[in-house]
Design a protein around this nucleic acid. Structure first.
Length: 912
RNA sequence: GGGCGAUUAGCUCAGUGGUAGAGCGCUUCCUUCACACGGAAGAGGCCACAGGUUCGAUACCUGUAUCGCCCACCA
C-alpha cells in the first residue's frame, strides 16, 4: 500500500491479526540464543484450563508482555513461558455440570471414564484462553507451553511428593479439616472465604447430672452440634464455676452425660456465660481442647453435612430427636433443635450475634469442619527460609506494602492440607498393602474406591510398585488427588524441565519477574517460594510485582451475576488491543484497585488514532520529495524535540525499571500528544513550507528519526500500532519488536533549545488567549507585538520570528515594550512576557476588560501575599536562600505585569 | 478483634515541605491542506476533619470520621 492511501482513522482489526501472525511465524517469541544475551524470564500465572479471558487476565498479561517486549528489545534473551492450570475442583465442577445436563453423574460414569471425559473436554474446549492471549498480543513462547498435568509436570509433582515424604515433610493423619459438602472434598485453610453474617447466640441450660434441678448455662451459635458434645469447659480460675469442675452434666436431647473440665485456653470468662460446650468432631477449637482433655470425638454429620440418623444414634441422641432431625441438613435442623429445647424449657435466651461464616472458594457452599484422614505438608521448615529471602531482599515484593502481608502470613502459617477427595488432578503416589494391614479395606458405596484406614502404612513412590516390601501384590493407591496449588507451586522450575537438568533450567532459573494479583499471594506466590528454595536451592524469581484488582467504574468487583463485566474481547473488538493495553497499564498505580470505565478506553483509542495521524502526516511529507542536501545544523525546533525525546526515553525507562507502568504511560502520552503533535509537528510545518530547502530536508530527517524512535519507545505498550507505522516508515530490519529499545543519547540533550521553545510556547499561548478574548477566528491574520523582559528573551524570539508569524497567524514584531506604538492594542502579560495584539474593526472588548481586571486582582492578591512573606523576618532568615530569591523574582515580575495590565486596561476602557 | 490502604476538580486518579495537576465530562470559538477519535481558549479545588511539628503542611506526626481490602477458631 502506498503512503497516500493510509486511512484517516486507524483501523486496528486487520493490522492486529496480520502482525501477530508475522511475529509468530518468524519465531520472534523465542528467546535469542547468543551466549552474551542476559536472560530475562517470566512464567505466566497459569490460567485455569476452563477459563476465558477476563479483564483481570488482560491486565496481568498486558503488563507481562510490556516487560518482556521491553527486555527483548533491550537485547535480553527474553523468555515468557505460557501454560495452563488443571484447576482441580473448578474443572471437575465444570465437567460435572455438563454431565448433569445430560442426566449423568460422575459416580455412574466411574473414575477412569470421568477423568478421560475431562481430558477429552480439555482437548476440545480447554485452552480458549491461550488463543485469547494471542489476541492481546502476548509474545509468549508458545513452543514451550505447559500444562500442570502434562507428563513432565506430573513427573515433577511425584518427585516432589516423594522427596517431601522422605524428608519427613509430608504426613497423613486424621485431623479436623475444612470440608465442602457440595464439592465433597477437603479444602486448605486459604480455600475458605469468610463472610460476615449475623447469626444467633443461643444460651442453653445443661442440667447437672447429680442435681437435675440446677443448670449450667452454655452459650453456642451452633445448637445442632450439641449432640456431638463430649464435655463442657470453663475457665479454671472462674470463681463462679470452680466447684463444678470434675462433675458432669446431662447432655440435653441425648441419654449421655458429659464431664465438666477446666480449660484456660478455650474459655474466655467474659464471653457469653463463661461456659463452653466442647464438640471435638465439629469445631477447630473444640478439636484442640478435646486433644488436651482426651475427649472422645463424636461425629454427628456425614460428608454431605447431613445429621445422619445412624450417627445420631451412635451419639446416643434420644429416638424422638433422631426422628425429627435425622437426615436433615444443618440449617434445617437448627430451628428444630431450637424448638425442642424451648419445649423442654432448656433454652435460656437467644441473642443476635455477628460471626464469620466460612464458604468454599469454588462454590460458595458453607464449609464444615470435618474429621477425616488427609495428607498434610509440614510447612514450618519450608516457611522459615521463605521468610528469610523476603526479609533480606533476595526477593523483592513490589509494591513493598505487601511485604508485611506476606511475612505476617508466613510467620503464622499452618500445615497445608494437600489431599482432595476429587478425581481430576494428580493422584497421590501412595499405596497401601491390604495384606500387611491385616483386614480388607472397606469399599466406599458411592464409587467403590478403597477406604484407606487411618493407621494403614503408606508406600510412597514415584512409580506404581508391583508389591509391598513383604512381596504382597495387594496394593491400593490412595484415591485422593493433590491440591491444584501443589503443582502450581512447582511452576517456575517444572515448566523449565525439572527434574531433568535442562539447558532452560540452567539458563532461566531463577526467573526474573513474577507478575500477579494480590489474591493469589498466599495460594501461589508463597508456595512457589517455599518449593523453589527447597528443590532448587534458590529463589524462584527476583521480583514479585503485584498489580491491582480490576473493578467496574463504581468500584464493584466485576461478576457475571452483577452484569458489570467489561469483556476484554469486546473492548479489543471495539477499540483495538493497543488501546486496552495502554488503558490498563496507565491505570496500574501501585497499591490501588483499578476502576475501569469504558470512556477511559475510548480516550486511549483516540490517542492511538492521534499517533496514527501524526505518522500519516510525516509519511505524506517524506513521500515524493526531491532529495535536498540537509542543512548543516538542526533547527531549534529539531534540537528541542530531540532533547525532549531524550528526556522521555530516560523517564520511561526509569519508570519501567520501577514497574511504574502508570508513569511510563503518562510520560508517553504527554510527550507524544502535547509536545510532539501539538508543537513539534506544527513547527515542522513551518520549515516544510519550502519543501525543497535544505532546512526542510533536515526537518524531514528529524521527523523520521524522532518518529521511528518514538515508535520503538512505545512498542512494548502498543505493539500493533507501532509495528504498522514502523513498517510503513523507511526502516532497517524485519520488525520493530526485535529492534533495540531507545537509549538516552547525551548529545541530544539541549537545555538552550528547551528554554527557547518554552518562551516560544508561552508567547503563542498568550497571543491565543488574547485572540480568544476579542473573538478573532483562528484563521484571521492579526498583527502583534511580542517582548520578553528576561535577558536574552528578545534574541530568542527574533530567531523564531518565522514560527511566531506562522503559528501566531499574523505579522509579528519583536520590539521592546516601550516602543510599541499602536492606537488600539490589547496587551497581555505573564511571567515577564508581554504580547500586544492589534485590535481591528469593531470588537466587544468587555470580555477582555473583565478578564484583565480579574487577572490584575489575582496578581495583586498574590503580590500582597509574597510581600507579606518577604517582610517576615523568620522566613527570610530560615527559608533556603533560593526560595527567598524565587519569591523576590516572582514579586518583581508581578509588579511589572501589573503595570502593563493597568495601562492595557486604561486603553481598553477608553475604546469601549 | 488485628493489620493495611484510601479520602485532592462533576467523575476516575496522579502528585509535591515553598505558585494545586492530568484524563474524561462541562462552557465558548473553529471543519485551517495529519487527526472533529481533532484544534484553541475557558470555568471548576478551605487537597475529609481536629490537633501537633515547621518560617511555611495538601504533603511529615498524632487522633477522629467515612469507605475499602486482607487476616482471625472467641463459643
Amino acid at each position: 500500500m502506498t503512503k497516500r492511501e493510509l486511512a484517516k482513522v486507524y483501523e486496528p482489526h486487520q493490522v492486529e491479526a496480520r502482525w501477530y501472525e508475522y511475529w509468530a511465524s518468524r519465531g520472534y517469541f523465542r528467546p535469542r540464543t547468543d551466549a552474551q544475551a542476559e536472560p530475562y524470564s517470566i512464567v505466566i500465572p497459569p490460567p485455569n484450563v476452563t477459563g476465558s479471558l477476563h479483564v483481570g487476565h488482560a491486565l496481568n498479561n498486558s503488563l507481562q508482555d510490556i516487560l518482556i517486549r521491553w527486555r527483548r528489545m533491550q537485547g535480553c534473551a527474553a523468555l515468557w513461558i505460557p501454560g495452563m492450570d488443571h484447576a482441580g475442583i473448578a474443572t471437575q465442577n465444570v465437567v460435572e455440570r455438563q454431565l448433569a445436563a445430560e442426566g449423568a453423574t460422575r459416580e455412574a460414569l466411574g473414575r477412569e471414564a470421568f477423568v478421560q471425559r475431562v481430558w477429552q473436554w480439555k482437548e476440545q474446549s480447554g485452552g480458549t484462553i491461550l488463543r485469547q492471549l494471542r489476541r492481546l498480543g502476548a509474545s509468549c513462547d508458545w513452543d514451550r507451553t505447559r500444562f500442570t498435568m502434562d507428563e513432565g509436570l506430573s513427573k515433577a509433582v511425584r518427585e516432589v511428593f516423594v522427596r517431601l515424604y522422605e524428608d519427613g515433610l509430608l504426613y497423613r493423619g486424621e485431623r479436623l479439616i475444612n470440608w465442602c459438602p457440595r464439592c465433597l472434598t477437603a479444602l486448605s485453610d486459604i480455600e475458605v472465604e469468610h463472610e460476615e453474617t449475623t447469626g444467633k447466640l443461643y444460651t442453653i441450660r445443661y442440667p447437672l447430672a447429680d442435681d437435675p434441678l440446677r443448670h449450667l448455662l452454655v452459650a453456642t451459635t451452633r445448637p445442632e452440634t450439641m449432640l456431638g458434645d463430649t464435655a463442657v469447659a470453663m475457665h479454671p480460675d472462674d470463681e463462679r464455676y470452680r466447684h463444678l469442675i470434675g462433675k458432669r452434666v446431662q447432655l440435653p436431647l441425648t441419654t449421655r452425660d458429659i464431664p465438666i473440665v477446666g480449660d484456660p485456653i478455650l474459655v474466655d470468662r467474659e464471653f457469653g456465660t463463661g461456659a463452653v460446650k466442647i464438640t471435638p468432631a465439629h469445631d477447630f477449637n473444640d478439636f484442640a481442647a478435646g486433644e488436651r482433655h482426651h475427649l472422645p470425638r463424636v461425629k454427628i454429620m456425614d460428608l454431605h453435612a447431613l445429621l445422619a440418623a445412624p450417627l445420631l444414634r451412635t451419639a446416643e441422641a434420644e429416638p424422638s430427636v433422631v426422628e425429627v432431625i435425622g437426615g436433615l441438613p444443618v440449617n434445617k435442623a437448627r430451628p428444630k433443635i431450637e424448638h425442642m429445647l424451648a419445649e423442654r424449657e432448656l433454652l435460656e435466651k437467644i441473642e443476635p450475634h455477628k460471626m464469620a461464616l466460612g464458604k468454599c472458594y469454588r462454590c460458595k457452599t458453607v464449609v464444615e469442619p470435618m474429621l477425616s484422614d488427609q495428607w498434610f505438608v509440614r510447612i514450618q521448615p519450608l516457611a522459615e527460609p521463605a521468610i528469610r529471602v523476603v526479609e533480606e531482599g533476595e526477593i523483592r515484593i513490589i509494591p513493598e506494602a505487601w511485604k508485611n502481608n506476606y511475612l505476617g502470613w508466613m510467620r503464622d502459617i499452618k500445615d497445608w492440607c494437600v489431599s482432595r477427595q476429587i478425581w481430576w488432578g494428580h493422584q497421590i503416589p501412595a499405596w497401601y498393602c491390604e495384606t500387611c494391614y491385616g483386614r480388607p479395606f472397606l469399599k466406599r458405596a458411592s464409587d467403590g474406591a478403597a477406604v484407606i484406614p487411618s493407621d494403614a502404612v503408606p508406600i510412597v513412590a514415584k512409580t506404581q510398585p508391583q508389591a509391598c516390601a513383604q512381596g504382597h501384590p495387594t496394593l491400593h493407591q490412595d484415591p485422593d488427588v493433590l491440591d491444584t496449588w501443589f503443582s502450581s507451586a512447582l511452576w517456575p522450575f517444572s515448566t523449565l524441565g525439572w527434574p531433568e537438568q535442562t539447558e532452560d533450567l540452567k539458563k532461566f532459573y531463577p526467573t526474573s519477574t513474577l507478575v500477579t494479583g494480590l489474591d493469589i499471594l498466599f495460594f501461589w506466590v508463597a508456595r512457589m517460594i517455599m518449593m523453589g528454595l527447597k528443590f532448587m536451592g534458590n529463589v524462584p524469581f527476583r521480583d514479585v510485582y503485584i498489580h491491582a484488582l480490576v473493578r467496574d467504574a463504581e468500584g464493584q468487583k466485576m461478576s457475571k451475576s452483577k452484569g458489570n463485566v467489561i469483556d476484554p474481547l469486546h473492548v479489543m473488538e471495539q477499540y483495538g488491543t493497543d488501546s486496552l493495553r495502554f488503558t490498563l497499564a496507565s491505570m496500574s498505580t501501585p497499591g490501588r484497585d483499578i476502576k475501569l470505565a469504558e470512556e477511559r478506553i475510548e480516550g486511549y483509542r483516540n490517542f492511538a488514532n492521534k499517533i496514527w495521524n501524526a505518522a500519516r502526516f510525516i509519511l505524506m511529507n517524506l513521500d515524493g520529495r526531491r532529495a535536498a542536501v540537509p542543512a548543516p545544523e538542526r533547527s531549534v525546533a529539531d534540537r528541542w524535540i530531540l532533547s525532549r525525546l531524550n528526556a522521555t526515553i530516560r523517564s520511561v525507562t526509569q519508570s519501567l525499571e520501577q514497574y511504574r507502568f502508570d508513569q511510563a504511560c503518562g510520560t508517553l502520552y504527554q510527550f507524544i500528544w502535547h509536545e510532539y503533535c501539538d508543537w513539534y509537528l506544527e513547527l515542522a510545518k513551518v520549515s516544510l513550507q519550502q519543501p525543497d530547502s535544505s532546512e526542510a530536508q533536515q526537518t524531514r530527517q528529524t521527523l523520521l528519526e524522532s518518529c521511528e524512535t518514538v515508535m520503538r519507545l512505545l512498542h512494548p505498550f502498543m505493539p500493533f500500532l507501532t509495528e504498522e507505522i514502523w513498517q510503513t516508515l523507511p526502516h532497517e530490519g524485519e520488525s520493530i519488536m526485535i529492534r533495540p529499545y531507545p537509549i538516552v543519547d547525551p548529545t541530544w540533550e539541549d537545555q538552550k533549545a528547551e528554554d527557547s521553545l518554552s518562551l516560544f510556547q508561552h508567547s503563542i499561548a498568550l497571543l491565543r488567549t488574547g485572540r480568544a478574548l476579542v473573538n478573532y477566528s483562528p484563521s484571521a491574520q492579526v498583527a502583534f507585538f511580542v517582548d520578553s523582559l528576561n535577558p536574552g528573551g528578545p534574541v530568542t524570539l527574533r530567531a523564531l520570528k518565522t514560527a511566531l508569524r506562522v503559528l501566531g497567524r499574523g505579522p509579528v514584531e519583536v520590539l521592546p515594550h516601550a516602543q510599541w506604538n499602536a492606537p488600539r492594542l490589547l496587551r497581555l502579560s505573564a511571567q515577564g512576557l508581554t504580547v500586544g495584539l492589534h485590535i481591528q474593526g469593531e470588537v466587544d472588548v468587555k470580555k477582555a476588560v473583565d478578564r484583565i481586571i480579574k487577572q490584575r486582582d489575582e496578581e495583586q492578591k498574590e503580590a500582597l501575599r509574597l510581600q507579606g512573606k518577604l517582610s517576615n523576618k523568620e522566613f527570610v532568615d530560615k527559608a533556603p536562600p533560593e526560595i527567598v530569591a524565587d519569591h523576590h523574582q516572582r514579586l518583581a515580575a508581578m509588579t511589572q505585569n501589573q503595570a502593563i495590565l493597568e495601562s492595557s486596561l486604561r486603553q481598553l476602557q477608553a475604546m469601549a
